[in-house]
Design a protein around this nucleic acid. Structure first.
Length: 568
RNA sequence: CGGGAUGUAGCGCAGCCUGGGUAGCGCACUACCUUGGGGUGGUAGAGGUCGCCCGUUCAAAUCGGGUCAUUCCGACCA
């Protein structure tokens, strides 16, 4: 490709709202252009990189035995009603009507459609397992699109769905996909971790996210300093918290604690370490058909993990309860505790408080707290994992310290079980001639997001730094001065012969000054540049390494061989 | 969804508040000249419904109301 023929509109200034390097460089270097909130066009450079990433994903998926298909973006709402998600999925699901007034959605994910494809076509266990995948456009009407391609509304995802006759087979494929994803992200040259994750609205039991470790990540990840344990903070667990502080041993008694409403106040007043107190977090849970106040009890020095809390009560959403709603529920803010709650109040207790003693907690009576409280006689189903793991907590696998880091989610694999197949009545006959719902797995990779992630993971103050696997071109041959006949001829020769060898190179033949072309090289970030310029007087040219910016001078007749080795 | 900000040439911005009256700067663009190893220098140009609607006024980019869009912080985010 000749640069003079390439549509790569590079600019000096980044859009004012771009805060992340990937966002700035994608736009400044002319990879993408924005045309609406969370909507981006891929320009030639962006499209090349996108395709390269896509090809790697496709290659590994095919190698793993999956079948590529392509499902439509527009989906009849009927299918979503069948699975029950039409009413459950939030506002991210864009709904609309056609001219006949029928309801449709723009697919944010395709479990429903794929089940519909397989239903009544796969009818025997002998036809299983089966793995179908696609790499296509998705739409999610994000509340707040941002960070360029990292959180757009329209994006491209590789989504795969596997079908199995039983749980064991499903788990096998889950592990197989973990391996496959590891291969994909390794090939892309990314620094990543597979972490335990929450399954969110997709549902299912076990799920793992693939996180690229990057400062600008949106997710918090808990990682063990010593062993391989890693988890999204929404799902992270720890060894039970302990303390060296002596327990405040006391007879169980109600204590007058006037106006002492916060953990800090109460603990100071009673001279108790917050470790020995119970914090009540009052939330409003929103269900499909109702809303209600729910109380979560955790240790006074812990923080409620909202995703865990949401999973505990099975609500669609948890929001802060207003003072009025708390009062109407019969609760006294600041004095709420697990005993003598109003009959109809739903509540959950963190696992770590089970059978703990010598605690202080609200008495559900204004200006009174219990001391010497024992956490006994609650139903097992009240106990849930509710707390947020923090840096410095202890790893439950090896006993070392846990740390916290940021990550960008690039892949997520789920064990769905029979959730969708049951809801949509998709069944097959097993070995015993009995009708069974399919066991399913589902596996996603954010392909368009990866374009941005690659830059987030590899850039400097000058621009992008592509690796050979994903670079739009491997080499930028820069003609220092196109008015110099000799430079032009030499560069053209090298360009033609490298091209003939199947190497993916660019010839910057534009009538621009040397500095201008170098800036473009650095901004776009091709792995290498070849400068054909002044050195020709001594019969030499220079190869620049984008990563190190180091230049190597070579004789013209030796450069082709050198480049062939460098680029292959 | 809560709180803030912005909308003026392709991009980045000034002008508005505080005096309502001719729309400006940098980059990019066009022509010619110049220069040719780090976004060369010069001369001359082209390019605008000042987001949209309504109102106040002799007169609105500027004042008032509405609306749309974009965006930042937070909540949310398979």
């Amino acid at each position: 490709m000749r640069f003079s023929n390439l549509f790569a509109p590079t600019v000096k200034e980044a859009p004012k709202d771009a805060t992340l390097p990937s966002h700035k460089y994608l736009i400044r270097a002319g990879f993408v252009s924005q045309y609406g909130s969370g909507l981006y066009n891929f320009l030639p450079l962006g499209k090349i990189v996108f395709d390269k990433i896509k090809d790697i994903v496709k290659e590994e998926m095919d190698k793993a035995g999956a079948n590529e298909i392509q499902m439509g973006v527009v989906t009849p709402a009927e299918l979503w009603r069948e699975s029950g998600r039409y009413s459950v999925f939030g506002k991210e699901l864009l709904r609309f009507r056609d001219r006949k007034d029928n309801d449709f959605v723009l697919g944010p994910t395709h479990e429903e459609v794929v089940v519909d494809i397989v239903k009544n076509r796969i009818t025997s266990y002998k036809q299983l397992p089966l793995h179908l995948y696609q790499i296509t456009t998705k739409f999610r009407d994000e509340a707040r699109p941002r960070f360029g391609l990292l959180r757009g509304r329209e994006f491209t995802m590789k989504d795969g769905y596997s079908f199995h006759k039983d749980e064991a087979c499903m788990k096998k494929e889950f592990d197989h996909m973990e391996e496959t994803y590891t291969k994909i992200f390794t090939r892309l040259g990314l620094d990543f971790r597979a972490v335990d994750a929450d399954s969110g609205a997709i549902g299912g039991s076990g799920s793992k996210e693939f996180m690229v470790l990057a400062q600008n990540g949106e997710d918090d990840i808990i990682v063990c300093e010593n062993c391989s344990y890693a988890a999204n903070i929404e799902a992270a667990t720890r060894a039970k918290k302990t303390t060296d502080v002596e327990a405040p041993i006391a007879e169980t008694a109600k204590f007058f604690t006037p106006e002492q409403k916060t953990i800090e106040d109460v603990c100071n007043y009673l001279r108790v370490d917050p470790f020995y107190s119970i914090k009540a977090v009052i939330k409003k849970a929103i269900y499909e058909e109702k809303e209600e106040i729910v109380v979560f009890f955790i240790r006074g020095n812990d923080v409620l993990q909202e995703t865990k809390a949401l999973n505990a009560c099975g609500a669609l959403d948890l929001v802060d309860a207003s003072a009025q709603e708390v009062e109407e529920a019969g609760l006294i803010a600041g004095f709420c505790g697990p005993v003598n709650l109003p009959e109809d109040i739903n509540f959950y207790i963190d696992n770590e408080l089970k059978e703990e003693k010598n605690l202080c907690c609200g008495a559900n009576e204004k200006d009174y707290h219990w001391v010497g409280f024992k956490m006994l006689n609650f139903k097992e189903s009240r106990y849930k994992d509710l707390i947020q793991v923090n840096a410095g907590d202890i790893c439950s696998c090896c006993g070392s310290k846990l740390g916290i880091t940021k990550g960008i989610e690039v892949g997520h694999i789920f064990q769905l079980g029979q959730k969708y197949a049951s809801a949509m009545n998709a069944t097959f006959l097993d070995e015993n001639g009995k009708s069974q719902a399919f066991y399913m797995g589902c596996y996603g990779i954010g392909v368009s997001r990866l374009v941005a992630v690659m830059i987030e993971a590899s850039h400097d103050e000058l621009g992008c730094i592509w690796n050979k696997q994903t670079a739009p071109f491997l080499l930028d041959i820069i003609i220092s001065n196109v008015k110099n006949e000799e430079e032009r001829v030499v560069a053209e020769d090298i360009y033609q012969s490298l091209k003939a060898k199947g190497l993916n190179v660019l010839l910057d033949d534009r009538n621009e000054r040397f500095g201008f072309k170098m800036k473009d090289f650095e901004l776009i970030g091709f792995p290498y540049a070849l400068i054909v310029g002044k050195g020709l007087q001594e019969g030499s040219v220079e190869v620049v390494d984008r990563k190190t910016l180091e230049k190597v001078s070579l004789k013209v007749d030796a450069v082709e061989k050198y480049l062939e080795e460098l680029l292959s």
